[in-house]
């Protein structure tokens, strides 16, 4: 079975090849920073954490085994770092990574407050801008596992099997997570989508 090209590069990195490492950083910087940004919400902190992800890859390069795709290994490290950061913030009583949906007095999640379609700006560009803002807000309201699955799916449409490995779930559980995320996005974005 031919080796994943990124895994081949990573095998060079394991032997201390810095040029190969630089190639991998250049290739994966954007998907990793965007996956982290959806959790952190702060572009500067997201970039710092992304840097830490790649430093961690460099530090643990000797442990890499080309049994799985490099991207699966990389995103699993990125997700672990996001979760650690969330725990650290929770310990320090800082703002949570997950901006959890506000709950009503009965403990139930309140429906997303959406603007009246008629009140939306008529201008196309402004409408698109508003839609993107709502996409970002809807994504942040997803549970961490659903959000991560969607971000991984967006990244070159990663196969479900690889997403399952990153999430540490079974394939059927992963399919269910993706479906639930899609249903939520569809409901939340419906008022902003063109008929």
């Amino acid at each position: 079975m031919p080796l994943d090209p990124d895994a081949e590069l990573m095998l060079k990195v394991r032997r201390g090849n810095r040029a190969a490492f630089e190639t991998l950083v250049t290739k994966f910087q954007k998907p990793v920073i965007n996956m982290i940004f959806q959790s952190i919400s702060d572009p500067i902190e997201a970039e710092d954490l992304t840097q830490n992800v790649f430093v961690q890859v460099w530090k643990t390069r000797s442990r890499y085994k080309p049994t799985a795709k490099f991207s699966t290994w990389l995103f699993a490290i990125a997700r672990n770092m996001c979760l650690n950061e969330a725990r650290r913030r929770a310990r320090h009583r800082a703002e949570s990574l997950d901006q959890a949906p506000k709950e009503g007095a009965d403990g139930m999640e309140q429906p997303l407050q959406v603007a009246d379609r008629a009140a939306l700006p008529a201008d196309d560009a402004a409408l698109r801008c508003e839609l993107h803002r709502q996409v970002e807000a809807a994504l942040r309201m997803l549970p961490e596992v659903q959000r991560t699955a969607m971000m991984l799916l967006r990244h070159k449409e990663m196969p479900y099997e690889d997403i399952a490995k990153v999430l540490g779930c079974s394939l059927s559980a992963t399919k269910s997570i993706i479906h639930r995320a899609r249903v939520t996005l569809r409901i939340r974005l419906k008022p902003y989508l063109r008929p």
Binding site: Q29, F37, A46, T50, H132, V135, L139, R154
Partner: peptide, 18 residues
């Protein structure tokens, strides 16, 4: 919804990130 999600602008790392 998927199209809106897939085409939403992404965060660009700074030019000196690498």
């Amino acid at each position: 919804a998927w199209a809106a999600f897939a085409t939403a602008p992404e965060l660009e790392p700074s030019s000196n990130f690498v």
